[in-house]
């Protein structure tokens, strides 16, 4: 299982791993019931510490995307698509609020903020 992780990425390693697996699950590359590599195996593959991969799996379990069965391993959960979507929408909403707060605090105009937003949308969604 290839998970892109980078030392140059400012996000903590465990988050990069959990996000990487999450993306695979949401894209359907990993299906409910599929077995995930063991925490130790993944740590060896990615050359990270066991605690890091463990934490990544705990994150995913909390998001109800995987289930960890002691002694058996970890599996992709029978997750509720709506719940996952609403969770990530809530997270996005919160992040946007932070951005707007930051903009207000530093005196960025609403118009400029909108322009930035549309420009990013244009770049990211263009051609998809």
């Amino acid at each position: 299982m290839f998970i892109p992780i980078s030392n140059n990425n400012p996000r903590p390693l465990y988050e990069q791993i959990s996000e990487g697996i999450k993306t695979k699950i949401l894209r359907g590359e990993l299906m409910p019931g599929d077995a995930l590599p063991s925490i130790r195996q993944l740590a060896q593959d990615l050359k990270t510490s066991v605690i890091t991969t463990k934490r990544a799996y705990f994150e995913l379990e909390q998001q109800k995307l995987i289930v960890m069965r002691p002694g058996k391993g970890s599996f992709v959960a029978d997750y509720d698509v709506d719940e996952i979507t609403s969770l990530s929408l809530r997270k996005i909403q919160q992040q946007m609020r932070e951005i707007v707060d930051e903009a207000k605090r530093t005196g960025v105009l609403r118009e400029d903020l909108e322009n930035i937003f549309y420009k990013i949308l244009e770049e990211e969604y263009c051609g998809r």
Partner: peptide, 12 residues
């Protein structure tokens, strides 16, 4: 060497 250590630690 790191690889060998990771392999060793596969046994919890």
């Amino acid at each position: 060497l790191l690889d060998i250590l990771m392999e060793f630690i596969q046994d919890e």
